[in-house]
Write a protein that binds this DNA or RNA. Structure first.
Lengths: 240, 240
DNA sequence: TTGTGTTATTCTTATACAAGAGTTATTGCA
DNA sequence: TGCAATAACTCTTGTATAAGAATAACACAA
């Protein structure tokens, strides 16, 4: 029977925190089944209802999935959910479109000031830069530059072809789960370097998206700068 | 004691639906106090815990606010929350900025095809068009065109100056609560008409935002087309 | 293969008690 | 009497527990 040392609010919150810690630490890895409500209750010396409340809260935060009759499982970010959730480009009719990879380059280089600040690294620390160009219906529609701390993602450069969705890879191969992403959007003239890659005229307006992908423990795990062509597509948001 | 006719899942869900209906109908208006957990339990012949679960779910959906020792109240959309939530323009440092109204015109006209479709109206039905230009730090930053069904918002044209945030007005004066808004974003060259209003050069890239504001009953209550200048500001989103 | 029981899991409901907030009554004193 | 401090009470939501129902998966026999 485990102990809930430290008076930290209600019991269910303490259980929530304890299980959360076990998920963050990797002891409970994505896809694994959690102890049942009764087991958890026994472990922390609380009632099943209290354990249940903690699990419900974890489900609400998106960290676990529950299925009646089966059990509770640590959430896994699948390619589908990851793409649907974090890739916001949609067709005019609102339909989801799956972008195809056109080109990809990975290199190691020092971070610039903005990237180092975003990732919480020292100036000019080593980072991996993943540069990708994507197309939809054979039309090139976006260029993405992802920047990652080499310490957190060792050997990324030598993996060869990366999957369409990067976040499931982060989770599977590096134990890093992306919980949310904050984005800053601007309408700008396409920068020269990007215009070359996408074969655009100089005066094309594009959407610039600056993303900070944040892990479950709260730190910025990836800094991404993207350029979207929004002639036939749009970026969809739902405010609620 | 009220009856929960119609077998619709668990008891707490039936209570949730019943109370929801009372809110949508206006019987429970924004700001009003709901019956206590015990009263509600008595009304629907369930236990206090079951009524409590229904209320918690309503709170989760954002329809009510609960305060220990005080009671449960139908949520009111204040100017602050409305602005913060539905106005996504932020400064580079992420700080919220309050836009000031520069000009405003309201007129009645027939809806165009796109507006009629969005609002679920017949072609060329009468609508109010609210056209507003806003500034931040004395710099003009956006033009918004809101289109509303004249039937749902009678007398809007003759109200004189409208408040900075429209949604609290919809709620207070017309009993229409906006629950969420779906937006479609595109980077475009500023249209000529808009460029004139904002005093911009022809080739300025701006962000075009097409919004459908949706009421608690699910229908589109407002169609809005906005143009944002994103030279010194950005549109902030959090994906989770 | 099909059906039936068994077991393990989450889900639903009910009850009791704790804690916060506001109102009313009472007390003490000038 | 007037008034303020305070105590008691009542109404509210929050927390914890327990017991039974619903669901899913599996084993095993016909």
């Amino acid at each position: 029977m485990d102990d809930l040392s430290g008076p930290a609010g209600p019991l269910y919150q303490q259980v929530y925190d304890a299980v959360m810690a076990r998920i963050v630490s990797g002891e409970l890895a994505p896809g694994m089944m959690l102890p049942s409500e009764f087991d958890l209750a026994a472990q922390y010396a609380v009632s099943q209802g209290t354990a249940r409340k903690a699990l419900s809260k974890l489900e609400l935060s998106g960290l676990v999935e529950r299925h009646q009759g089966k059990g509770t499982f640590v959430a896994t970010t699948t390619d589908e959910t990851s793409l649907f959730h974090f890739f916001r480009l949609r067709q005019s009719d609102g339909a989801q479109v799956i972008p195809q990879l056109v080109s990809e380059t990975v290199r190691k280089r020092p971070a610039n000031a903005r990237e180092a600040a975003a990732l919480g690294l020292a100036a000019r620390a080593s980072v991996f830069e993943v540069m990708r160009v994507r197309s939809i219906n054979d039309a090139v529609v976006c260029a993405e530059q992802s920047v990652l701390d080499v310490v957190k993602f060792p050997g990324l450069k030598d993996r060869g072809g990366l999957p369409n969705a990067l976040y499931p890879l982060y989770q599977r191969s590096y134990g890093i789960t992306i919980a949310r992403a904050d984005e800053q959007l601007r309408a700008v003239m396409v920068p020269e370097a990007v215009g070359g890659m996408l074969a655009l005229a100089d005066n094309t307006p594009v959407m610039e998206v600056e993303r900070r992908a944040i892990g479950i423990s709260g730190g910025v795990m990836e800094f991404r700068l993207s350029y979207y062509l929004t002639q036939n597509l749009h970026y969809a948001v739902s405010l609620r």
